[in-house]
């Protein structure tokens, strides 16, 4: 198996926050949802991957190479989307095309304009006059039009309405038609990730709590609900995390460790996140 991104034992310390031994790998041809609450360390990790921040320790490889060894070649093959478009606001989509034509070897002008047309992004208006949805669509088109192999997305759908988010997710799925393409997708809109992600990596207070196949998470885990007394009947080795609720207790369990006599609900990624953040180890 090849990996688009390999992060191991990444550390980065700030005054009041630190990334602590972050490790995960994004297999080529897959989408990884990178989730966590605000301030958990998602953006810091992404910035370290992109060398926007200098790591204190650990290794980061993109396409098997350390990003510093072959910086420009690797950057030619990456498309990056942040939570806002970071071009001066007086520029238009037309001018951005001229700039990027001179920037990327593989810049595809006709594909760029096709995507602008497909997503109905105005070409001649300055960025400052575009709506947030338009800006984000433009940002994603910019990331796609040089035919990258890897997309690194930091909250690209936050603050967007469901229609625009759906259009954007469709673009990502279209991008993934090529099996050599991969996406690292940071978001706290877990429903987006449930639609498209193959893997979920969950970061909390600067530490990775799990990095797992999405189907394993959704289909091999279950939520049991009942009273505290009833919960004692559950096998101890099946219990992962528990939370108290108004109606008793909810326990995240491993399905294969629990008898079919127990009724289990299928968890969402959001619920799993909540169990890991708010719940207690059982």
């Amino acid at each position: 198996m090849t990996y688009a991104i390999e992060v191991s034992n990444l550390r980065k310390k700030f005054n009041q926050f630190q990334l602590n031994d972050i490790s995960f790998s994004l297999p080529t041809g897959t989408i990884m949802g990178f989730v966590g609450e605000n301030g958990a360390g998602k953006t810091t990790t992404i910035k370290c991957i992109l060398s926007l921040l200098k790591k204190d320790a650990g290794t980061i490889k993109i396409f098997g190479s350390n990003i510093k060894d072959d910086n420009l070649t690797i950057k030619e093959q990456i498309g990056v989307v942040f939570d806002d478009i970071h071009f001066p606001e007086t520029l238009t989509a037309q001018q951005i095309n001229k700039f990027l034509q001179e920037t990327y070897v593989n810049w595809d002008t006709s594909y760029y304009f096709d995507l602008l047309k497909q997503l109905k992004v105005t070409i001649n208006k300055p960025i400052k006059e575009l709506s947030r949805g338009m800006k984000m669509k433009l940002s994603i088109i910019i990331a796609l039009a040089h035919h990258p192999k890897l997309l690194i997305l930091d909250e690209p759908t936050s603050g967007l309405d469901p229609i625009v988010r759906d259009e954007i997710l469709d673009l990502f799925l279209e991008f993934m038609q090529d099996e050599k393409h991969s996406i690292l997708f940071s978001s706290h809109i877990t429903s987006d990730l449930e639609k498209i992600a193959d893997y979920i990596t969950f970061i909390h207070e600067g530490e990775i709590l799990f990095s797992e196949n999405k189907d394993v998470l959704l289909y091999e885990l279950g939520i049991w609900k009942g009273s505290k007394e009833q919960s004692l009947e559950l096998p101890t080795n099946a219990k992962i995390r528990s939370r108290e609720s108004a109606y008793g207790v909810e326990i995240l369990v491993k399905r294969n460790e629990v008898s079919s006599a127990f009724q289990l609900d299928q968890p969402t990624i959001e619920e799993i996140m909540l169990f890991f953040v708010k719940g207690v180890r059982v």
């Binding site: 030619e76 990056v80 071009f87 001066p88 606001e89």
Partner: peptide, 18 residues
């Protein structure tokens, strides 16, 4: 000023420029 207001440097450093 334009660059700082738009966060340009953050994006520019993801592009293939030294």
């Amino acid at each position: 000023t334009f660059d700082e207001m738009s966060g340009w440097d953050k994006f520019a450093n993801t592009l293939p420029f030294r």
